[in-house]
Design a protein around this nucleic acid. Sequence first.
DNA 1: AGGAAGATCTACT
DNA 2: GTAGATCTTCCTA
Length: 193
Amino acid sequence: METLPRSFYERDPATVARELLGKILVRRLTNHVLSGKIVETEAYYGENDPASKAYMGRKTFNEPMFREAGKTFIYMVHGNWLLNIVAHPKGEVGAVLIRALEPLQGIEVMKKNRGTENLKALTSGPGRLTKALAITKDLNGFDVTHSHSDLTIVEGGLMESFEVCVSHRIGVKADLPQNLRFYVKGNPFVSRH
DNA sequence: AGGAAGATCTACT
DNA sequence: GTAGATCTTCCTA
């Protein structure tokens, strides 16, 4: 399966967020491969987006958002690591938050990492999926455009058709007027319907 | 030192 | 579905 190239991420964050649906997030550990289909995302912009981590301008912790697209931006909220992929046209600022996955490979390892047998709760939320895939700050700034690395995103092979829904972003204090959350209609692993 | 933060878990109506 | 406690780092003072 083809790894998504950097050019995929060098576009408007909302476009990237929309097109990441159905792609496969692959996490390689020493003895296991974990993967899941991306079923829910949100787009974030830069200084003009009050919900964005980049809203306050360039700081140490949000630096990845200002740098090269196709790399991770990971931070902690309420005790959970949240995984973003930096996405923006060259010279701009933005990222896409991965909010939910449908588990594919390594489900037993994910259950162990999450401490639950509940399949529905394994990766159906931004903090849940990072725990299931053992993603922490250690992977901040990691380039996901290289195949065979510890964290990559690949094409979904035979793409089943699915309907995309949009809504406002979840949990943000001040949202923009446009809908910037994207999810696969009817998928049971979407965090909220 | 203190508080906020893009969430989660549990326990209910 | 909503309500409240708790979660752990980073930011500001």
